[in-house]
């Protein structure tokens, strides 16, 4: 078991003929992901590697029974691509695109909710269930199958953490990059619930950063609903207020969204917060009694 994706996932790639889309479509396939098709308007009949290309998501779903899609189209067209996937009945939509206007996402949300579409991102590295499927731009070789679930607002910091886990003998059930934008799809609470219910997951790592109050809400949720051990890390403890740290979501505004507040919330919920990435595997092992 795992969450969201596994060896049964049938993935299509929207924007498959673009530079990033074609590169990562093949990388994902090499990892072992069941990439069944791609979408690029006007390119139906072509192939990227041996992956067939379709004009529309509807066509792709009809031909391949795809149940997940990954989006690599430019920011201007990203919201349209998510709509298209949702309308075609795709259950899981992973949006890698960085720089999507926030109001585009806001306008999408009610429709996605009505359709029951699960969205990850935008501005995210994707997700991986080690040994089964990788839907994203993450480097596959650092992951190892195991029992630690991981969720993160950041990309490369996720790799850093996963590397710490793997080199210390801790494999992962599923690792999800939820993205760095202020308005995004699946977030901590939904993923915590999935990991809590996933029999393969025995411990959870939550990697947060400054800005917003999602970590505080996650802490509250953990306190009330999560029985599995959770450990956390917060990036941006030294970030100055009012400055956006790369991610649109990572900004301390008027004294709220600080690392100190988030750390306090986690500690009150019984979630230890690592000061350095190297402490994460130590904390996990302590919690698992290893």
């Amino acid at each position: 078991m795992s969450i969201l994706i596994n060896s049964d996932t049938r993935l299509i790639v929207q924007g498959i003929t673009g530079r990033d889309g074609s590169f990562h479509a093949q990388k994902m396939k090499e990892y072992g992901t069941n990439v069944v098709g791609g979408v690029s308007p006007g390119k139906a009949g072509q192939k990227v590697g041996d992956i067939p290309v379709f004009n529309t998501v509807k066509d792709a779903v009809a031909a391949t029974k795809a149940n997940a899609t990954i989006i690599f189209v430019p920011p201007k067209f990203a919201a349209d691509a998510v709509y298209e996937a949702s309308e075609a009945g795709v259950e899981l939509v992973i949006t890698i695109t960085e720089g999507v206007p926030t109001l585009d996402m806001v306008k999408l949300m009610p429709y996605l909710k009505k359709n029951g579409t699960k969205v990850i991102g935008p501005n995210c590295p994707g997700l991986v269930t080690p040994g089964e499927a990788l839907a994203g731009i993450l480097p596959g070789n650092i992951f190892k199958k195991g029992n630690v679930g991981l969720m993160s607002r950041s990309g490369t910091l996720t790799y850093e953490m996963v590397n710490q886990l793997t080199t210390n003998g801790l494999g992962q059930s599923t690792c999800v990059g939820i993205g760095g934008d202020p308005v995004a799809g699946l977030y901590y609470e939904e993923l915590l619930e999935m990991f809590e219910n996933d029999p393969q997951t025995d411990a959870i790592v939550l990697i947060g950063e400054i800005g917003g109050d999602a970590e505080e809400r996650a802490a509250k949720y953990i306190k009330e609903k999560v029985t599995k051990p959770v450990v956390a890390f917060i990036a941006g403890q030294t970030a100055p207020p009012g400055k956006r740290m790369g991610h649109a979501g990572a900004i301390i505004s008027s004294g709220s969204g600080t690392a100190a507040e988030k750390i306090k919330a986690f500690e009150e919920a019984g979630v230890p917060v690592a000061k350095k990435p190297t402490e994460i595997p130590v904390l996990i092992k302590e919690r698992l009694g290893k």
């Binding site: 950063e209 030294t238 991610h247 990572a250």
Partner: peptide
């Protein structure tokens, strides 16, 4: 490379007693 790792880098410099001169993410 990467905003989260860039923030974590600033943090770790501070933990070891130094002061970062900047946040710089060279992207992907």
């Amino acid at each position: 490379n990467g905003a989260g790792l860039a923030m974590a880098t600033m943090d770790i410099i501070k933990i070891y007693g130094g002061e970062p001169a900047n946040f710089l993410d060279i992207g992907g």
